[in-house]
């Protein structure tokens, strides 16, 4: 019946109108979101570089902290002023022959006693230089200053060294934009004790507070 169809017309109109409206809104949403970036990783690189002209002159340095030099060790003795007597490695090791038999920390004596080492299967002389205890040695025997220790770590930890070089490993502070300021970066042993390199467990800080713990607990 024609009258029946006429009664249905409003419903059909409604459906069409809603569909068009929904399409319109979603189109509007698409237009509003994502200012400019069609493909954020490739599309606009030329533009970015052009706009970035100023920023590309990276004038500020990335400063990597280095250990200052050979470590000095607490001898366990006190001087006249009650201060600990700190001594360099070579103080003893210059005269003592290296003991290549020492494989584990249990074999250590004097103030190396109790030293905890958990670094794979390495022995002391894998890294310490038996010819000059004030320096380190690379796997091929090359002498290495303590301040360049990262090079030593990098021999085995290639992926980490690669990530570090690309800014994706290791803590830092300062500027992401080097045209505006410098950046300071940690070195390996800032975070990793070379003898026990696994990052230690810590107590978490700042526990989250739910505003109404009582409301939840009441049930």
């Amino acid at each position: 019946m024609a009258s029946e169809i006429r009664k249905l017309l409003p419903a059909m109109a409604l459906i069409i109108v809603s569909a068009v409206a929904a399409w319109g809104i979603s189109a509007a949403m698409r237009n509003r979101s994502a200012p400019a970036q069609e493909d954020q990783f490739s599309g606009q690189l030329g533009d970015a570089a052009a706009k970035n002209d100023g920023n590309l002159q990276k004038k500020f340095p990335v400063i990597i902290r280095h250990p200052e030099g050979p470590p000095i060790v607490d001898s366990g003795m006190l001087d006249f002023h009650g201060q600990s007597v700190m001594i360099a490695c070579s103080t003893c090791h210059a005269t003592q022959p290296p003991n290549t038999q020492t494989r584990t920390t249990a074999d250590l004596d004097q103030f190396h006693k109790g030293l905890h080492v958990a670094h794979g299967n390495l022995s002391c002389l894998s890294c310490h230089n038996q010819n000059d205890y004030d320096s380190l040695r690379l796997a091929d025997g090359t002498r290495l200053e303590f301040r360049d220790v990262m090079q030593l770590c990098a021999q085995c930890h290639g992926p980490q060294a690669r990530d570090y070089q690309n800014g994706a490993h290791g803590g830092m502070t300062g500027h992401w934009d080097l045209s505006r300021g410098p950046r300071q970066r940690n070195n390996c042993i800032d975070c990793h004790d070379p003898h026990v390199p696994a990052y230690p467990t810590v107590r978490p800080v700042f526990p989250p507070i739910d505003r109404f713990p009582a409301a939840g607990a009441a049930h």
């Binding site: 990783f41 970015a48 490993h169 803590g171 975070c191 810590v202």
Partner: peptide, 18 residues
């Protein structure tokens, strides 16, 4: 503040960024 360096921040439009 991150003590482990787990976070990487930078400019997505700079192809040389970390």
């Amino acid at each position: 503040a991150c003590p482990t360096g787990a976070r990487v921040f930078g400019n997505l439009l700079d192809p040389d960024s970390e």
